[in-house]
Design a protein around this nucleic acid. Sequence first.
DNA 1: GATTGCCGCGTAAGCGCTTACTATCGGGCA
DNA 2: TGCCCGATAGTAAGCGCTTACGCGGCAATC
Lengths: 342, 342
Amino acid sequence: MNLEEVARRAKVSTATVSRVLNEVGQVKTSTRARVLKAAQELKYHPNLHARNLAGGKNRTIGMIVSNMENPFFVDIYKAAEREARAKGYELLLANTDYNPEYLVNHIRMMIGRRVSGLALVISEMDSSLIQELSDGNIPVVFYDVGTPKHNISNIAVNYAKGIERIVNYLHALGHRRMAFISHHPNLGPLSVREHAFRETVVRISPPIKWQIAVSADGLEGGREATREIFASGFDPTAIICVNDFMALGVLHELRQAGISVPGDVSVTGFDNVQLASVCSPSLTTVHVERERIGHLMFQSLTEASPVAEACRRKIVLDPEFVVRESTGPARKRIAFAELRPA
Amino acid sequence: MNLEEVARRAKVSTATVSRVLNEVGQVKTSTRARVLKAAQELKYHPNLHARNLAGGKNRTIGMIVSNMENPFFVDIYKAAEREARAKGYELLLANTDYNPEYLVNHIRMMIGRRVSGLALVISEMDSSLIQELSDGNIPVVFYDVGTPKHNISNIAVNYAKGIERIVNYLHALGHRRMAFISHHPNLGPLSVREHAFRETVVRISPPIKWQIAVSADGLEGGREATREIFASGFDPTAIICVNDFMALGVLHELRQAGISVPGDVSVTGFDNVQLASVCSPSLTTVHVERERIGHLMFQSLTEASPVAEACRRKIVLDPEFVVRESTGPARKRIAFAELRPA
DNA sequence: GATTGCCGCGTAAGCGCTTACTATCGGGCA
DNA sequence: TGCCCGATAGTAAGCGCTTACGCGGCAATC
């Protein structure tokens, strides 16, 4: 069933049916009614592919994220979706699981669908891909990676600042042995945080002992990284996590090991996802405005002002430090061995 | 840039370019190389709309879920996505936030895109919509709602059984005052659980006192429902939640109120999302095989056996009871007023 | 009563692809 | 030598829709 059948049934031309369905042009009320009736009776659903092909336009924007299991990404997605819905756009979502190969496929797919904008909330971006995108002419907005170009905007969070706040805070509480838990350390935005950690820690005197552990993004990854730190013999008084999601795993592992938080070890997260305030103990973390990020990403893709568009920009959000229950004064020097049940 | 430009540059016809790009038909190696080179140089990306229009086929399936914030849905999505990827399919996701209006729009959109199958993991389905879908001819699979038809499959979990297990277990532990926390009580699959709760509770003797509280699906909803129960004056020794996600909120609210779990109140969830084992105290819950659900949904949409397709079926999964830390013997009769800090 | 202008609608040309169907060219074979 | 067939590649007809263009008719204008 296509436009033509509807037209035949309503005894008009396909052009008229199209006009009615798209609410453009002048159509007599009675004709409109006939068309609508015919469409309804035939259970007609316009073929969006044909529509896109013919119309050329496309109120669709694509969003690619790294890990839909992490609530951080879900929040950004939902914010963008809400915005898209309000503005009459469609939001296409794809998930890469941090796999660069999937990412390439998804980008190709989005381009193939001729989205009118592409929001990339990912870390696994290599420069050749960025190049390929900046050669194209569809508006792109990155979160956390890349640099502005004629068709590329950037939104970033000042991670260095956030990490610095955390480290300084812990230092002030007397912590001198810190572990940093991360995932995918060689991906750009994540290495930024690691560097920030290293630098801050090194800059402080008296010097802080530190160690870095890496695992997968997620609850299980947080747990594993924690075990790794224990196993290495390093006994931190504070564990700084690259995000809340991993921190939740850390909390769990510590609890299972009989290590109290923050009594024995302080733990921090990053992002301030809703779970961070709901878990036990609640997480000291850094708030990242996901709502605003989703909003800004959508904006920068659809804002129609060609002047402002001409010079693409980079927006950097300042994070806000949030102190909760998972951090406290450093314990006196006691080895982990004594803390942990045999 | 389109097929024609590539063809011109490679000095062949569009048909040949198409053949090369789709790897069908016979093309001389040297020609193929020329075409590939031209496509690369022009940064050609095939227009998927045109491709779909012309080809008629469509390795795309759509999935609509109620609430992407709830990890339960994310897990199903990821399972289906993995499967789709392996089979060379595209998975289109849409989120309704339990809003029937959004649902209708998303369904129309999926049909408009001519997906080759539609997976609906939603509760807010009214019968007229089901009717509309069963009139159509695209394969549809529901989770938790609807009945099998020629083009409709169903996958469900025996919620009643799960709830019954929970109630019986709590009863055996001495609980005689139970609260049931739910969301969207008049949506089909959710009311099923509520009924199961009611029936089980009523069937048991000596009789159990019970109450039902309703709020939004989510952490905040769980908290609010808990407050509501408190405020009503009912003092349950156990709180049964319709899913883990809400239970996490309940746990948080109880902790804040200074009520210990399971010492003062036992709490149960449903679904066994990963967080249920990671939170503190870990949740007694009922395991629902999300992995398998995602898998089955995909299967039932793409399985090519026309014989098996002829008679659509309903698959019911039996849930498995998982006991963890959030449940314990009922406390002796002490009013909440005494438990809670003034 | 002829002219103007606008409303309402049909005609038809694409949008970028896929895919019959056809045409060409050698080579193998009788 | 003549013929047939397979390997290649081109031609062109759609897929279902939008939209520029144009035409008839009717009210308003002079």
